[in-house]
């Protein structure tokens, strides 16, 4: 009984996170300016990280934890590189 309840709760929170990733995708696709797109991408990375953590809870496997950590790292590096590019026009000075 409690397992079924928890399974439903996990699925609905995954839907909520998916909706939030949809909002971020909209901001990334629509702009209007480049900084808005980068901001949307950053929020999208965060949504993906948290969604992977919920998959970890759902399956009880720690594999998803490592994937979430890797996505978080990639998101940080990617957003910093894009922000530097917006400011200077190049990434490595």
């Amino acid at each position: 009984m409690s397992t079924l309840f928890l399974a439903l709760v996990i699925t609905s929170s995954q839907i909520l996170l998916g909706l939030s990733m949809l909002c971020a995708t909209y901001r990334m696709a629509r702009g209007p300016r480049a900084q808005d797109r980068v901001l949307g991408l950053d929020a999208l990375y965060l949504g993906a990280t948290l969604l992977l953590v919920t998959y970890g809870i759902q399956t009880g496997r720690s594999l998803y934890f490592e994937a979430a950590l890797a996505i978080g790292l990639l998101g940080f590096a990617g957003t910093v590189a894009l922000a530097k590019f917006l400011m200077r026009g190049e990434v490595i000075e």
């Binding site: 929170s13 949504g47 919920t54 809870i57």
Partner: peptide, 21 residues
């Protein structure tokens, strides 16, 4: 406990990205 934490966390994240819109 896990269900409550998950639901409130996911809702908070969703509210944040709604602000993005």
């Amino acid at each position: 406990i896990v269900g409550l934490l998950l639901l409130t966390g996911a809702t908070t994240t969703l509210i944040g990205t709604l602000g993005l819109l």
